[in-house]
Amino acid sequence: MATLREVPSPAGGWRLFLLPGDCLLILLGLVLTLVSFPLFWQGGKGTRAVIRLDGKVFREARLDVAQEIRVPGALGETVIHVEKGRARVRSDPGPRQYCVRQGWLSAAGDMALCAPSRVSLSIEGDKAPYDALNY
């Protein structure tokens, strides 16, 4: 059995395998793929920080003015920092500090949960993401 190496490469190179329709489809696929990136990765930047306590909205803050929000959580006080375009959980009395270590959140849909304190910080955009799919 001949190995691939022994077989002469197609005369004229691999390009000969591509028929006009093939090239058209590849081009179409390329364009659709490139278009799909902004289409599905939109809703990127968040505009509001929503803080929930016990699952109920405790405070909403727009991400344009720097401020510090103190939330009376189940274990003590959770401190949330809001800055221009981002927010983070500054401190939390919870034992594992997951929400604090998550750092700054800026993209719509980002969320930090301080489960023991029953406090959550989520970033939301002006328009709900994935709108393109819910037409």
């Binding site: 197609p10 395998f17 990765w41 994935y130």
Partner: peptide, 28 residues
Amino acid sequence: HDGVFRLIPVFALAALVFGVLNGLAACR
């Protein structure tokens, strides 16, 4: 969850690349 659709661009790119390569291999 609609979040899975955020992967569409990556999957589309992979389908495009591997689709063309497999097609060329099949031609060969």
